[in-house]
Design a protein around this nucleic acid. Structure first.
Lengths: 235, 235
DNA sequence: ATAAAATTTTACAAATTCGTGACAATAGCA
DNA sequence: TGCTATTGTCACGAATTTGTAAAATTTTAT
């Protein structure tokens, strides 16, 4: 799966820096020096994320973002803005209601990549049909199977069976491993906004998942963060 | 941060029920019996969310929602509609394109609050979730973990566990490190201004934080500024 | 040096949160 | 059709967290 990112940035050095770092992270970068160019690109390619850079100061950036959010074809594309330090953050927050996230300059490449990944994860969390393997568990979304690798070198990995909900829960937790999720977040992601369930129901599914994992000797993979939520972690 | 919610609902009992539950959840509720009254309120106060109730049946509600979405000043306010069961949900979905979300009556108070929070959560920008590293402490808001780097070059940084409040306290102090915070400021930022706390309580949490830090050899990171408040400092 | 003020500890009860087992309702399937 | 798996809820108890009051200690001012 390839992810395409459109960068709208008039400063050549910054543009280069961003594009380089994106490539290094395995993402495809398209660059535009101005809004007109960006519009032309979007006609042909629908990016997974748009980064709007320094042109913000001219208000052109905000206008462009708004335009993207209005059009049906583009309105679900997340937008990340790079804003200058000196503009009051309240003003920015007011202006950029259509924007998914923003970074205040100057920022480190590392920070940029982290933020991009965060935005993408929020948008396309379970798009990956890829096999995910972590903490001795191998989960295959296509075959809907989970295998367990035990420590004692049995060549035969045991297979465990999970109910549909438990499977989705484990999948989500494994994709976003190490990250704590509140019950509300899990509810949003696994049940959707329009299905109403008690928050405690999530505890129950966590328990069911834990029980089956414990049966094959995998304890402590699904952890409780008291007062916050749950987390999948390999220590 | 206070969140204000405008309720437009002509049924007094329902209005009362909603407003009561909002207050209990720490949200400020403004009530209007009809659309005219609601308009007058909006001139003075810009709410963070509008709940439109039973008046929907008269089409007045939809018209009102549309009006809100057109005006520049109000168009970014999310709208939550309470709709009656008997109206076909497809019809409603068609009509209320301007609405962020809707609940079908009858609903439980709990469900209402959950939905409100979901709508607000979607709108509010993600909290600053960058890793903060200072004074030998590394705090990661996404994984909700704190690691300690000891001087004696152990490659394994120790992990410490903090209660939710201690964690938030440390996070806040680290973000605003070197700056002194009065107890009142800490109270505002960590508990919000609608929760009443004894000022001494903050001393207690400072102490709890200090105790766990001291246990891993990190003394003097949280400092007292006598007569003013507290500060996180790396000397 | 002594009283007053501010902060640190200690101890404790109330409130909250979490794990668990049991249960009815529902959906899926043979 | 009946059987089985799944789904979501609830209530209870255990563990943890929360906020407070009050005693003990430290610092400051007189």
């Amino acid at each position: 799966m390839t992810i395409t990112i459109l960068i709208v940035e008039d400063e050549p050095i910054l543009q280069e820096m961003i594009s380089l770092n994106l490539k290094r992270a395995g993402l495809i970068a398209l660059c535009a020096d101005n809004v007109e160019q960006a519009k032309r690109i979007i006609i042909n390619v629908l990016p997974d994320l748009v980064i709007i850079g320094g042109i913000l100061s001219s208000m052109e950036g905000i206008e462009f973002a708004r335009r993207l959010k209005i059009e049906e074809r583009t309105k679900s594309i997340p937008i990340l803005m790079l804003t200058a330090q000196d503009q009051g953050s309240e003003i920015i927050a007011d202006l950029v209601v259509d924007v998914e996230d923003y970074i205040i300059k100057p920022f480190s490449p590392h920070e940029l990549i982290a933020r991009i990944k965060a935005v993408l994860r929020r948008r396309l969390p379970e798009m990956a049909d890829e096999i995910i393997q972590w903490g001795g568990l191998k989960l295959d979304p296509t075959t809907h199977r989970v295998h367990v690798y035990t420590k004692d070198e049995q060549l035969e990995p045991a297979e465990i069976t999970l109910g549909p909900t438990e499977f989705r829960l484990l999948h989500f937790l494994m994709i976003n491993r190490e990250r704590v999720h509140t019950r509300a977040q899990l509810q949003d992601r696994l049940w959707g906004d329009h299905v109403f369930i008690e928050e405690r129901t999530i505890d129950v599914y966590i328990r069911r998942l834990r029980t089956t994992l414990k049966a094959v000797g995998k304890e402590n993979l699904v952890q409780t963060v008291r007062g916050i939520g749950y987390r999948f972690s390999v220590e």
